[in-house]
């Protein structure tokens, strides 16, 4: 075995376990074991298990983002120090100082690499589970030969789950594969757009919107549909379903987060406070000692301040 399949082996084993478990569940409650819908719902089950397992990490990350508020003044100081300096030296030095600040104060808001990179083998593992099935190979664990065949050949709206867009163009699969693949690409792009726009329009503080990172984020928004289109024509439909459902999950999760735990200082935070105030139960959840004021002020506290005014206020603060 090559090193990659050794790494993938346990992941594939777990993926097969979850898929087969959900497949037996759906078959048990009377669905046709060989139907595409049953397998698609098994993939949905897989997404739910994987993403639910990632929720604690997500919550942790949001909490440390909230704590960013405490170091905001120090962060601002660093940003001011390097304001307008675009050369590589200054940008590097700025990143270093920022990172150091995060570490010292224990407020690192970045999500870390491992969870992201772990999702990649899951996706790849699913791909290889399906790919094996396509070539008449059983899985590494609970995915028997019969189940593998059933999975690969089951049809969703007339499109076999092992089918790819490219394969359909070459006449290997029926035309329905093309329709399903294109629909999924469109849905994926749409959900990605909605997720991003939700964040950008509602859940960003004015400082973030002013940062150079924000522009990069925007470019990404227009790049992603291309990525979806390219991968959408090459990947089997079954794998695409995992991705699509996962995207929908992200969208829903984002919606809940923006509604219930918005970024302080963003539009969504103001909306939430207004909503709570209306119901008469505005509670300050974090024990924020100094600045959390009474009912009327929270919307004012984070009002965007013009550059000039901010400078003036800062200067005054420094003098006194």
């Amino acid at each position: 075995m090559d090193p990659i399949s050794i790494i993938l082996w346990p992941i594939k084993w777990v993926i097969e376990l979850i898929l087969v478990a959900f497949h037996s569940l759906w078959s048990f409650i009377g669905m046709d074991p060989d139907a595409g819908v049953t397998w698609v719902l098994s993939i949905v089950g897989l997404v739910i298990v994987v993403r639910a397992a990632l929720i604690p990490i997500f919550v942790r990350q949001i909490k440390s983002q909230r704590r960013m508020l405490e170091v905001a003044p120090q962060l601002k100081k660093i940003q001011d120090k390097y304001k307008g300096k675009k050369d590589q030296f200054s940008r590097e030095a700025m990143s270093r100082e920022t990172m150091d600040l995060y570490k010292r104060t224990g407020t690192n808001p970045l999500s870390s690499c491992l969870p992201l990179l772990l999702q990649m083998p899951i996706f790849f593992g699913l791909y290889s589970v399906l790919n094996d099935a396509q070539h008449d190979k059983a899985g590494v664990g609970l995915f028997t030969q019969d189940l593998a065949n059933s999975f690969a050949n089951s049809e969703f709206l007339g499109a076999p789950l092992k089918g790819t867009f490219i394969g359909a163009v070459n006449g290997e699969y029926p035309w329905q594969v093309m329709v399903v693949a294109v629909t999924m690409i469109i849905l994926m792009t749409a959900s990605q757009f909605i997720t991003q726009l939700q964040i950008v329009s509602k859940n960003m503080s004015p400082e973030t919107k002013a940062s150079p990172m924000f522009r990069q984020q925007r470019i990404l928004l227009y790049l992603l549909p291309l990525v979806f289109a390219f991968s959408g024509v090459a990947f089997p439909i079954g794998v695409m379903f995992y991705w699509l459902v996962s995207n929908f999950w992200t969208m829903g999760q984002q919606f809940v987060v923006i509604r219930n735990m918005p970024t302080p200082g963003s539009e969504a935070a103001a909306a939430r406070e207004a909503r709570l105030a209306k119901k008469g139960k505005l509670v300050v959840e974090e024990p924020a000692p100094t600045e959390e004021p009474t009912k009327k002020q929270p919307t004012q506290r984070q009002q965007p301040v013009g550059k000039q005014r901010a400078k003036k206020q800062n200067n005054q603060g420094n003098k006194s």
Binding site: F58, Q61, I62, Q65, M68, L75, R91, M94, S95, T98, M99, Y102, P109, L110, S111, P115, L116, T195, Q196, I199, N203, M204, S205, T208, S211, P212, M213, F214, Q217, T250, Q254, V257, T263
Partner: peptide
């Protein structure tokens, strides 16, 4: 430049 919350809240 790691700026808070823009990229990370999506993940």
């Amino acid at each position: 430049v790691p700026v808070p919350s823009a990229a990370s809240s999506r993940k």
